[in-house]
Amino acid sequence: MGLGLRRTGRHGAQGGPAVELSGVRRVYGRGAATVHALRGIDLTLPRGSFTAVMGPSGSGKSTFLQCAAGLDVPTEGSVRLGGTEITTMDENELTELRRSRLGFVFQAFNLLPSLTVEQNVLLPLSLGGGRQDRDRAAELLARVGLDGKGRRRPAELSGGQQQRVAIARALVTRPDVVFADEPTGALDTTTAAEVLGLLRDAVDSLGATVVMVTHDPAAAAHADQVLFLADGLIADRLPRTPAPTIAARMTALAGRPAPSYTAA
């Protein structure tokens, strides 16, 4: 099903990149406990693209997502979202950025059980003090296959339906970027494919930009490109590729020896 929603340009020049990382490093701890989670990421993602990020455990993919989304601050380097430099923002500015210009879809859905489905979709607008655009909420819910379910509570929905609500919520502000962290991790194979189809349609029909961390080659196969992280670096990338090819590349990366580094 196509989302069929028109992208309206609210933020930045529409021709510019959606995501830009330059020399991004993230170091945790000190001395013998130092962890180099990201060792220097340079990356530009165009608007209207779907990027999957994969890597072995400890490769830095979660840290990558957190730094790119303004949930964590790089130790070094620059992050720009929709043309806006975010690494110099204070916490209040970052909160406003995440609320108004970014969308998030998590494995655990993160819906508020006391709110209706419609209220959950409109939550980013409510928190920002914006107009409660119930027509847009209804349109998004219809496009994700939940027409007429706006008055229900999350507990009345299946897991797949709750993730559909989360996708509608992520799109309600017409964000510069939607960040998805293992969005199908709690879903069965059939439901996962339906949810991934909705994210794919958000890119193709709405012009959304999606950056998704996943461990699942079948999920990554929906993306325009797959980035492979290893040891805090981008080790490889593939254009839109069938799942078996992605799985083979992951297997090869997981078996490679870690590089040696000397302390600076």
Rank of each mutant, 00 (worst) to 15 (best):
R10C: 02
R10Y: 06
G12M: 06
A13E: 13
L21G: 10
R26C: 14
R26Y: 12
R30W: 13
A33W: 07
V35Y: 08
A37L: 03
G40D: 04
I41Y: 13
R47V: 01
V53P: 00
G58S: 14
T63D: 01
L65N: 12
G77H: 08
G83N: 15
E85S: 11
E85R: 14
E85P: 03
T95R: 06
R98N: 14
R99Y: 03
L102Y: 05
L102I: 05
L102T: 04
V105W: 02
N110C: 09
L111F: 03
L111W: 00
L111E: 02
T116I: 10
E118G: 08
N120W: 09
R131H: 15
R131A: 15
R134N: 11
E139M: 12
V144M: 00
G148T: 09
P154G: 10
G160D: 01
Q161L: 02
V165W: 00
A166E: 10
R174Y: 11
R174A: 10
V178C: 08
T184Y: 00
G185P: 00
T191A: 03
V195Q: 02
G197A: 07
D204G: 14
G207M: 08
V211Y: 14
A218L: 07
A223Y: 05
Q225E: 11
G232E: 08
G232D: 11
A247P: 03
A248W: 15
T251C: 12
A252W: 11
P259F: 11
